[in-house]
């Protein structure tokens, strides 16, 4: 078995009395494409938000590249209200802000696109390069980082060329068509030089042809940038075609996991998510 880049262990996320993610354990292997599927409201995006530091998990731990990245356990009021499992299994608290996690090498896209909509396409990509640039506020203001800036601009243009967006570089991001905004968001995530890319419904709102292009593109960038990819997606064609491993979530709980064949034949998954086709009943 290949080395795991991301290891999520017994993660529970409880908001007040609502358990959005319940005792989720999953692994993303190095160089793998892993999909997280499930009906609406199953807690998929919440799981993403925990991994990227937007929410602090209520209980459980997350490891990245073999190192502990997050860990938490219920304290204070939550200790009494906690409805999840594995209470008392985790003793430490380790919380990281989203920017620290991005710096470790986890980049993400958002379900409802979050581009810097008043800025140009090129600026959007350049902003993602900001954190890794060798500069400080003085060298940047007085243009002493000229070479670094030039390097950033070249790298940003390369990323736009891969996405075939170079001719739009001076357009305002918010004015672009939906599909292009999605592609730009992936280009921006790649600009942070990630090791693990989290895609939250990358094909949402795309037609079959665009979805197919996206499928090819995901495989292409995975190989080109040596990435591992963890994605939430509803398009079953895309998921079944390229995933190495699929996890199925329902009401915050993992109900199945395995290869695409295993998952698509699992009766619980069919009942909860894929649905029984009318023809099959005959």
């Amino acid at each position: 078995m290949s080395e795991n880049i991301l290891h999520v262990e017994n993660i529970t996320m409880q908001f007040g009395g609502v358990v959005a993610v319940n005792n989720l354990t999953l692994d993303v292997g190095k160089g793998e494409i892993v999909a997280l599927i499930g009906p609406n409201g199953a807690g998929k995006t919440t799981a993403f938000n925990v991994i990227t530091g937007v929410y602090e998990p209520t209980n459980g731990r997350v490891d990245f590249q073999g190192q502990m990245m997050l860990q938490n356990h219920p304290t204070g009021k939550m200790a009494k209200a906690y409805k999840g499992e594995n209470m008392g299994m985790y003793k430490h608290t380790m919380v990281k802000s989203p920017d620290a996690i991005a710096k470790l090498g986890i980049a993400r896209t958002f379900q409802n696109i979050r581009l810097f909509s008043e800025l140009t396409v090129l600026d959007n990509v350049l902003i993602a390069m900001h954190m890794r640039a060798k500069q400080n506020i003085f060298s940047a203001t007085f243009r002493l980082n000229y070479k670094e800036e030039q390097r950033m601009r070249r790298a940003a243009m390369e990323l736009l060329e891969i996405q075939n967006l170079q001719h739009l570089k001076d357009d305002i991001a918010g004015s672009l068509p939906y599909g292009i905004q999605r592609r730009l968001e992936i280009a921006r995530a790649l600009a942070t030089e990630p090791k693990l890319l989290l895609l939250d419904e990358p094909a949402a709102g795309m037609n079959p042809q665009e979805t197919q292009e996206l499928t090819d593109f995901i495989v292409q960038i995975k190989d080109q940038y040596d990435l591992s990819i963890f994605m939430i997606e509803h398009h079953m064609d895309l998921v079944m075609q390229i995933s190495d491993q699929i996890y199925v979530l329902d009401f915050g709980r993992l109900i199945a996991q395995g290869t695409p064949e295993e998952v698509s034949n699992d009766p619980r998954v069919i009942e909860a998510y894929l649905g029984v086709s009318e023809d099959a009943e005959d």
């Binding site: 802000s97 958002f110 909509s117 008043e118 800025l119 902003i127 900001h130 954190m131 800036e149 950033m152």
Partner: peptide, 20 residues
């Protein structure tokens, strides 16, 4: 580059944070 980061914070704090 810092000015761009400032504008990113203005446009979308969550996305800016996710970009490091």
């Amino acid at each position: 580059s810092y000015g761009r980061a400032f504008k990113a914070i203005r446009d979308d704090e969550i996305a800016a944070e996710a970009m490091g």
